[in-house]
Amino acid sequence: MNYQLIQFDVREGVARLTLNRPDKMNSFNAEMHAEIRHALDSIQTNTAVRVLVLTGAGRGFCAGQDLADAEVRFTPGETPPDLGDVVERHYKPLVMRLSQLRVPTLAAVNGIAAGAGASMALACDMVLATQSAAFVLPFANIGLIPDTGCSWHLPQRIGQARAMGLALTGKKLSAQQAADWGMIWDAVEDAAFASTVDALAAKLATMPTKALVRTRQAMQLAHTHTFEEHLTYEGTLMRELGKSADYVEGVSAFLEKRAPQFTGE
């Protein structure tokens, strides 16, 4: 696909997907969704990719849905579009791909993350943000609910009380407070952000990929299992990983007192 609204490249195991509508604060339209899905699908079949970095061009990460997009635009007096259909065709496939990607995912939030943009960041395994970034859930201001998985992810990350407060008030949350609340991994000084993201991505790209993804899966299912069920599930994953080439390499490197060379297998 010839990408127009995203930038996508793979270097040294790191796939970088950059939302590229800076004049629209990287807000979503149907074409951007299609390009993102295509890029994520390509990662699933490219074994050279070991980590995904998701970020935005310009001064913002993503402002959510573009309300001027033909699929959601309407004028007063007209029947509004079926937003449930929009969710099923665009936002559900987006977050399902992120949550099931064969590599760890890192959201590099370089500015405002609003609406579905904030939701998409929270769907990633880790979130780094600039100190100047902020998160906003403005859904209630236009009579909607937090979607794109936000109503599932947010209470798990920061608890019901804080999640409800953010959703009901639409209050802007600074990146630093988001980090303090445990909503994101860290808030980084703007000047050091790019190098910090690159260093973390490079580290993740050299780690045992399958183990990182199985860790995600275990944590995703933790709240749906009883404690005993989860112990059994942990055993299932440990049985699989204990037969992996990366486990053998990790133990060998430890015993030989050298740096491991993981392959993701």
Rank of each mutant, 00 (worst) to 15 (best):
M1H: 12
Y3L: 09
L5I: 02
I6M: 09
D9Y: 08
R11H: 11
V14C: 14
V14Q: 04
L17C: 06
L17Q: 06
L19P: 00
N20C: 12
P22M: 11
M25W: 08
M25G: 11
S27D: 13
E31R: 13
E35P: 00
R37M: 10
H38A: 13
I43N: 03
I43E: 00
T45H: 02
T47Q: 05
L52D: 06
L52T: 07
T55C: 09
G58I: 03
F61E: 07
G64I: 09
Q65Y: 06
Q65D: 00
A70I: 02
E71A: 14
V72R: 02
R73M: 13
F74D: 10
T75V: 12
L83M: 15
L83F: 15
D85K: 13
R89G: 07
Y91Q: 12
Y91S: 10
V95T: 13
M96Y: 07
R97Y: 10
S99L: 09
P104Q: 10
L106V: 06
L106H: 01
G111P: 12
C124Y: 04
V127S: 08
T130M: 10
Q131W: 01
A133Y: 01
A134M: 14
F135D: 08
F135Y: 10
V136S: 11
V136K: 03
L137Q: 05
P138Y: 09
P138C: 03
P138L: 07
F139V: 06
W152S: 13
H153L: 13
H153C: 03
R157V: 12
G159C: 10
Q160K: 14
R162C: 07
R162Y: 08
A163Q: 05
A163T: 08
G170T: 11
K171M: 02
A175Y: 04
A175N: 13
Q177G: 06
A178D: 09
A179Q: 13
I184K: 03
W185E: 14
D186W: 03
D190Q: 13
F193R: 01
A194F: 07
A199Y: 00
A202C: 09
K203D: 11
A205N: 03
M207S: 14
P208T: 10
K210N: 05
K210Y: 07
A211M: 12
V213K: 10
V213F: 09
R216C: 08
A218C: 10
M219E: 06
H225C: 14
F227D: 14
L231W: 06
T232V: 14
L237R: 12
M238Q: 04
G242D: 04
G242F: 04
Y247K: 05
E249W: 02
V251E: 00
L255D: 10
L255C: 11
K257Y: 03
R258E: 00
A259E: 15
F262C: 08
G264V: 12
E265W: 08
